[in-house]
Structures are given as structure tokens and as C-alpha cells.
């Protein structure tokens, strides 16, 4: 026999051996390589278009501002937010705990891509309403690397802040408009980051020299430490030349704590106001001087309309 043919024969037998051995091994340990190959060729379960990344953030707010998350369809979220006074007020005011700005709000999920809300904040007795729309959703398979949402909000300050005798307060003088894009990416289980280009229109400003339009860019994120606790941070940078004078940038650091059904957010922030036009454009405090507020957001959700998917616990 030709040596080459002999070698080839030995080689082919040698190639077969691990194959045959592998088959015996496979079935004994439930490692069905041949079946695995077939299933891998089938529609990859992970890559279906329906698989949007979930839980980029735990709550619909990062701290002060909105996150990419919407409330579920048919769910009403009753929220109570508190911002206490400044830490540097000392023991006399119990480090600011004697004073608090509060906001009550109701958020409702109309569809999985649309939520609306109304709220009332005690700072300058302001009412606000907003809509948050999902424009793009990050997918697990990476086809969409980002989630993008639009937030539009109108608020009305009902307190009279101008003390000029004879000043006629038209409704238009009380209104503010906020437009935000929320661009977020969940990088992994632990880290999610978000950018928030923001445009705010103030119908009435302090003087003619002040701009009515304020531009800001926000950045926020969360770092999940455990299944129940995440660290959060948020910063809004107002663009010089397009900002109101005498105000500083808003910075906040906090924690999300998940307690069974809901998320409790506790944090330190340089902003006392709770509506977008206040904390983004009109943050008064100077962090370096200790103008820091303790704050928290609590929410309670009520299922108003159970989506078809969730009815009777059957799809």
C-alpha cells in the first residue's frame, strides 16, 4: 500500500475517533452538539426585533430630570417629590429639613411609547404638564445602539413674582416651554448613560438683556451596585450666552433603592426647584458653598387599565 494512502487512512480514522467518542460523551452528559447546531441555525432567539433593552434606568426620572424610561401602558404613577432646604443652614434649621419644596404629580402610560403627566410644585406655585414619546429603542441584538425619547413640557407659574404696581399679569407671562431629547444607552447590566440636549423658552424674564431661550446639555447615568440599589448622577450644563444670569448649573448625586413594588430615590442636589425650567435654567445654589439640598422621590403605581397581555395572567 502506498505510504501516503496509509497515512491518509490513519489520519481519517484519527479524525473520526474524537467524533465518535464525542457522540458517546454527548448523550451521556446531555450535550447534543448536532441538535445544538440545528437550533443555532434557526431563528436566533435573541435577535428577534421585539427584544428591546429593558430597565435602562429603574425609574422614569434619573434624579430631577426625566430618564428614557416610560411608565407601563395603563399604569398611573402617583409621585411625591421633596427637596429640603440647604445643608449649610446649620442645626438651627436642622440642616435644611425644616423647609421643603414639594411636588405632587400624576403620570400615566397611554401606550408603551407614550406617557403623559401633570404636576404641581410648591416652588412659585407652578403647574406643569408634559408628554414623553419614545422615538427609538435600544435593542438587545445591537441593531439600535441607543434609545431616544422626546420630552415636551409646558408649565405655568401661578405665583406673582413681579412686584411692579400696575403690572398686568397675562397668562402668557406665566408660561414656560421645555423641549428635551433624551438619548440613552444601557452599556451593560450595571452602567447606563444618558445625554439630554435641552431647549427652554421663558416667556417672561427678569430684564430685557436676559435671553428668553436657554440652551443646556445634560448628562446623567446610573451605576447598578446590586439588584436593589443603584447610584445615580445628573448634571446640566447651561450654554454660556444662552443662559439666565445669576444661576448656576444643576448637579445631583443619589441612590435608587428598589423596595418590592416601587423605587425610592434619595439624593443630594444643588437645585431646589423640581420642574425642568427651574432646575435646568434657574438653579440658585452654589455647591462649593454648601448650597446642597437633600431630596427624595417616592412613587406609587396603580394599574388602571390592564393591558391585554397581562389580563388573567394569560397571553
Amino acid at each position: 500500500m502506498n505510504v501516503k494512502v496509509l497515512l491518509l487512512f490513519i489520519l481519517s480514522v484519527a479524525l473520526c475517533l474524537p467524533c465518535a467518542y464525542g457522540q458517546v460523551q454527548d448523550t451521556a452528559f446531555g450535550n447534543n452538539a448536532d441538535l445544538e447546531k440545528i437550533l443555532d441555525q434557526q431563528h436566533p432567539v435573541k435577535g428577534s426585533p421585539g427584544y428591546y433593552t429593558s430597565a435602562t434606568f429603574k425609574a422614569t426620572r434619573i434624579i430631577n430630570g426625566h430618564s428614557i424610561e416610560n411608565i407601563g401602558t395603563g399604569v398611573l404613577d402617583f409621585r411625591i417629590a421633596h427637596r429640603f432646604g440647604q445643608l449649610n443652614e446649620g442645626i438651627k434649621n436642622l440642616y435644611g429639613l425644616d423647609n421643603a419644596i414639594t411636588k405632587f404629580s400624576f403620570d400615566y402610560g397611554i401606550a408603551d411609547w407614550l406617557m403623559i403627566g401633570v404636576g404641581r410644585s410648591s416652588f412659585e406655585k407652578e403647574y406643569d404638564g408634559y408628554a414623553k414619546v419614545k422615538l427609538m429603542r435600544q435593542t438587545v441584538n445591537g441593531r439600535h445602539p441607543l434609545s431616544i425619547s422626546y420630552l415636551g413640557s409646558i408649565s405655568a407659574r401661578t405665583m406673582d413674582v413681579v412686584n411692579i404696581p400696575g403690572f398686568k399679569y397675562y397668562l402668557s407671562n406665566r408660561l414656560f416651554y421645555v423641549n428635551q431629547l433624551l438619548i440613552a444607552r444601557k452599556f451593560n447590566q450595571h452602567l447606563s448613560l444618558q445625554l439630554m440636549p435641552t431647549y427652554i423658552h421663558y416667556n417672561l424674564v427678569a430684564s430685557e438683556a436676559e435671553p428668553n431661550d436657554v440652551f443646556a446639555i445634560g448628562a446623567g447615568g446610573r451605576l447598578k451596585l446590586s439588584k436593589r440599589i443603584a447610584l445615580t448622577g445628573e448634571y446640566y450644563y447651561t450654554i454660556p450666552g444662552h443662559k439666565l444670569s445669576g444661576y448656576s448649573n444643576s448637579i445631583s448625586l443619589g441612590a435608587d433603592i428598589e423596595t418590592g413594588g416601587h423605587v425610592f430615590q434619595i439624593f443630594f442636589t444643588s437645585s431646589a426647584g423640581i420642574s425642568e425650567r427651574v432646575f435646568i435654567g434657574q438653579t440658585k445654589g452654589d455647591v462649593t458653598k454648601g448650597d446642597i439640598h437633600l431630596g427624595f422621590n417616592i412613587s406609587r403605581v396603580f394599574t388602571i387599565v390592564r393591558p391585554k397581555e397581562f389580563r388573567d395572567g394569560k397571553p
Binding site: 399604569v75 397581562f310 397571553p315
Partner: peptide, 12 residues
């Protein structure tokens, strides 16, 4: 696929 399970009592 685990993520494909539907039902439950709420989206949350």
C-alpha cells in the same frame, strides 16, 4: 427565550 415570557400581573 426568557425575555419572551408574557403574562404576569403588571408590566413592572
Amino acid at each position: 427565550s426568557i425575555a419572551s415570557f408574557q403574562g404576569f400581573n403588571s408590566p413592572r
